[in-house]
Amino acid sequence: MKLSEIAKVLNAKVVCGQDRLDEEQDKVFASDLMSDILTLGDNFPMIVTGLCTMQTIRTAEMGNLDIIVFVRKKKPTEEMIELAEDEGMVLMECDYSMFKACGLLWEAGLKPIY
């Protein structure tokens, strides 16, 4: 599924990485716990999270994740967006709850990592 379609399904605003919206993504992991995200293996670049702090961006950087959807109306700060841009990440803001966002992504055909 293209990232542009994911943004549409979630009614999400893309705040950085607009140039990557034609990329395809078929798996997603959702968590607010950064240590959980750091246990993921390679090649799983997309997360859904309600944790919106500088550590979310840093965790993504360390875990080789570069597509982050913030749920529950969380908005990344300018500093977070700047770091995400430096790392070439895609950030999206979604007003839905984690459950609703994940449900919609599941319905749209995205698969879990495990």
């Binding site: 607010d32 959980d36 246990t39 944790l51 550590q55 965790t59």
Partner: peptide
């Protein structure tokens, strides 16, 4: 609140 503190650091 930063997404840590679940007792996974050292095991990770």
């Amino acid at each position: 609140n930063m997404g840590f503190g679940a007792g996974m650091g050292l095991p990770n």
